[in-house]
């Protein structure tokens, strides 16, 4: 109870902060009950709000899949590209207009199977963009096939007796490819994830945030792991926060411990900086920098 003698300040009703960032004419969204993608959108919306970026300068690029639909729901310049190709589209967008803040928002299958090559090359070049990967460990949109992130022994429709296909450790891949910022959280860790996205947006260079997220319809159900809430509680009980952990140690086993935290935060010159510095050295005054 409030102290009866204290002076009270009445505060007017506040809008849901995510709403100003959503295309409300496209709601309700297509995501299943208990799916975590919407939760990551909340984190992104708050991170963006806190970042104080001019929203007109923010572009969001998605590939194909459940997370690929994020672009369609955000009231930003948004590009829903082809399967796996969000990163090269974003590369063209960012290099052609360096004043844009470019965010790639896509799923694990899109970014790391069909799009894996683009991920490592954009990280290697240190193209200035933030990549947010919602990792639900499965292909959702196509009906529950294994992804390059599916833990060994977990079942998908294409590995019905359990997968024996070794998965990627995404933070390790991002780290070794050259990303300047690498963090992993789960949809249970909403405040951490929000902070990580905010930090990633503030970094100059290729930043990567992985968010482990429940897919109740196609991952949890087939693997008898309960619903979305059960997965959230699993994350709560089995996540171990290890900031600065060596990324090669953060691989995931089926229903094993999940190492979360901020793993990498460093500076490297961006592709554009390297280009301008080098060509200025070569050409001197003759160099005509790309104006954007």
């Amino acid at each position: 109870m409030l102290d009866q003698n204290a002076v009270e300040t009445e505060i007017p009703e506040k809008e849901n902060p995510v709403e100003s960032l959503l295309r409300m004419d496209r709601m309700p969204h297509i995501w299943c009950p208990g799916c975590g993608i919407g939760t990551t959108v909340n984190c992104f919306a708050r991170a963006l709000e806190q970042s104080k970026l001019d929203l007109d300068s923010v572009s969001i690029v998605s590939g194909i899949g459940c997370t690929g639909r994020v672009a369609g729901y955000l009231n930003l310049d948004s590009f829903h590209t082809t399967h796996g190709r969000a990163i090269p589209f974003a590369t063209g967008l960012k290099l052609a207009n360096p004043n844009l803040k470019v965010v790639v928002y896509s799923g694990d299958g899109d970014l790391f199977a069909i799009g894996g090559n683009h991920f490592i090359h954009a990280a290697r070049r240190n193209v200035d963009m933030t990549v947010i990967c919602v990792n639900n460990l499965i292909y959702g949109m196509t009906g529950g096939q294994v992804a390059p992130t599916t833990p060994v022994t977990a079942k998908g429709t294409t590995y019905p007796y359990g997968s024996y296909d070794p998965p990627f450790n995404l933070p390790y891949l991002a780290d070794s490819s050259g990303a300047v910022y690498v963090a992993r959280w789960t949809t249970y860790h909403v405040r951490h994830a929000t902070k990580a996205i905010k930090e990633a947006l503030a970094r100059r260079g290729f930043s990567f945030v992985e968010i482990i997220s429940p897919c109740p319809t196609l991952y949890s159900r087939r693997n008898r792991l309960g619903d979305g809430l059960d997965q959230m509680n699993f994350y709560k009980e089995n996540s171990v926060i290890k900031n600065g952990a060596d990324t090669k140690d953060v691989g995931m086993d089926f229903q094993g411990k999940i190492t979360v935290g901020k793993f990498v935060d460093r500076e490297r010159k961006t592709y554009r900086q390297l280009m301008n510095e080098h060509l200025t050295n070569v050409f001197g005054e003759q160099y005509t920098p790309y104006e954007g």
Partner: peptide, 13 residues
Amino acid sequence: GLYCPDFAIHGFI
């Protein structure tokens, strides 16, 4: 509000 994946609830002071 931060958890709700369906943007269906939010809290405020």
